[in-house]
Lab assay of single mutants.
Amino acid sequence: IRKQWHEDITQDLRNHLVHKLVQAIFPTPDPAALKDRRMENLVAYARKVEGDMYESANNRAEYYHLLAEKIYKIQKELEEKRRT
C-alpha cells in the first residue's frame, strides 16, 4: 500500500537507513566489507527490517522512530551478549 508520506522518502534515504541498521549490527569502518558475501545476508535482513517499518509506519516521524527503536534494541542486545 502506497502511503502519501512515501512520496517524500527517496531511495537514497532508504538505502542510507538500511546502511545505518547494518552498522548497528556489524560496525565496520571498511566499506569494502559490505561487498563481502557474508554481509549479503546481513544487508538483506536490514532491508527487510527497513521495508517492514516503511510499510507499517503511518508517517515519516513514525518511520524514523521505529528504525531508531530497532537500532537501539539491536545495540542493547549486542552489548548484553558482549558482557556474558
Results as ranks from 00 to 15, higher is better:
Leu66Gly: 11
Tyr63His: 03
Glu80Tyr: 10
Ile9Tyr: 00
Pro29Tyr: 15
Met53His: 05
Arg37His: 12
Pro27Ile: 01
Arg14Glu: 03
Glu77His: 07
Ala33Phe: 08
Lys20Glu: 07
Lys20Gly: 01
Glu62Ile: 03
Glu7Gln: 15
Lys76Ile: 14
Trp5Cys: 01
Pro31His: 06
Trp5Asn: 08
Tyr72Val: 14
Glu50Lys: 01
Pro27Gly: 11
Val18Phe: 06
Phe26His: 15
Ala46Pro: 06
Val22Met: 06
Arg2Pro: 09
Ala46Leu: 04
Ala57Asn: 15
Leu34Phe: 12
Met39Trp: 11
Arg83Ala: 12
Ile71Arg: 06
Ala46Gly: 01
Lys76Phe: 12
Lys20Asp: 07
Asn58Ala: 09
Arg47Asp: 07
Tyr63Ser: 02
Val18Gly: 08
Arg47Lys: 10
Met39Thr: 07
Gly51Trp: 04
Thr10Asp: 13
Val18Ser: 05
Glu80His: 05
Leu67Cys: 14
Val43Ala: 04
Asp8Pro: 01
Thr84Met: 06
Glu50Ser: 03
Tyr45Thr: 01
Val49Arg: 04
Ala61Gly: 08
Lys48Ala: 06
Ile9Lys: 00
Asp36Lys: 07
Arg47His: 02
Leu42Trp: 08
Tyr64Ala: 12
Glu55Asn: 10
Arg38Cys: 12
His65Thr: 09
Arg38Leu: 05
Glu50Cys: 03
Gly51Met: 15
Glu7Leu: 07
Leu17Phe: 15
Glu77Tyr: 07
Leu21His: 02
Lys35Val: 12
Lys70Glu: 08
Pro31Lys: 11
Tyr72Ile: 15
Asp12Thr: 05
Leu17Pro: 03
Tyr72Pro: 13
Ile25Tyr: 15
Glu7Ile: 03
Ile25Asp: 02
Lys73Gly: 10
Glu62Ala: 02
Pro29Gln: 12
Lys76Leu: 09
Leu21Gln: 02
Gly51Gln: 15
Lys70Tyr: 12
Leu66Trp: 01
Lys20Ser: 08
Glu7Ser: 08
Glu77Thr: 13
Lys76Ala: 14
Thr84Ser: 09
Lys48Gly: 05
Pro29Trp: 15
Ile74Ala: 14
Ile71Glu: 09
Leu17Ser: 14
Ala44Gly: 05
Tyr64Cys: 06
Leu42Val: 15
Arg60Ile: 09
Gln75Val: 02
Thr28Gly: 12
Glu79Ile: 10
Arg38Tyr: 10
Thr10Arg: 02
Leu78Gly: 15
Ala68Met: 14
Glu55Pro: 04
Ile71Phe: 02
Glu50Phe: 03
Pro29Met: 14
Val18Thr: 07
Asp30Ser: 12
Arg2Leu: 06
Leu17Gln: 15
Ala68Gln: 14
Leu34Val: 10
Glu50His: 00
Met39Arg: 06
Lys70Pro: 01
Trp5Arg: 05
Ile71Thr: 13
Thr10Met: 04
Pro29Cys: 14
Ile74Ser: 09
Thr10Lys: 10
Val18Lys: 00
Ile71Asn: 01
His19Asp: 14
Ala46Phe: 02
Lys81Val: 09
Arg60Glu: 12
Tyr64Trp: 02
Glu77Val: 06
His65Pro: 00
Leu66Lys: 10
Ala24Val: 06
Asp12Cys: 03
Arg2Gln: 13
Ala24His: 02
Asn59Val: 01
Leu42Asn: 03
Glu50Thr: 02
Gln11Phe: 01
Asn59Arg: 01
Lys73Ile: 08
Lys35Asn: 12
Leu13Ser: 08
Asp8His: 02
Glu55His: 07
Arg14His: 00
Pro29Asn: 14
Asn58Glu: 12
His19Asn: 09
Lys3Gly: 04
His65Gln: 13
Leu21Cys: 00
Asp12Ile: 04
Leu17Gly: 11
Glu62Cys: 00
Arg2Ser: 11
Val43Met: 06
Ile9Gly: 02
Ile9Gln: 00
Leu21Glu: 03
Leu17Cys: 08
Ala46Tyr: 04
Val18Cys: 04
Pro27Ser: 10
Lys35Arg: 12
Arg82Gln: 12
Gln11Ser: 07
Ala61Ser: 09
Ile1Thr: 08
Lys48Leu: 01
Glu40Gln: 11
Leu17Glu: 15
Glu7Trp: 02
Gln11Cys: 04
Gln23Glu: 10
Arg47Thr: 08
Glu55Met: 07
Arg37Leu: 10
Lys76Ser: 11
Gln75Asp: 04
Leu13Pro: 00
Glu80Val: 09
Phe26Met: 15
Phe26Leu: 15
Ala44Lys: 09
Asp36Ile: 06
Thr84Ile: 10
Glu77Phe: 09
Arg82Gly: 12
Pro31Gly: 13
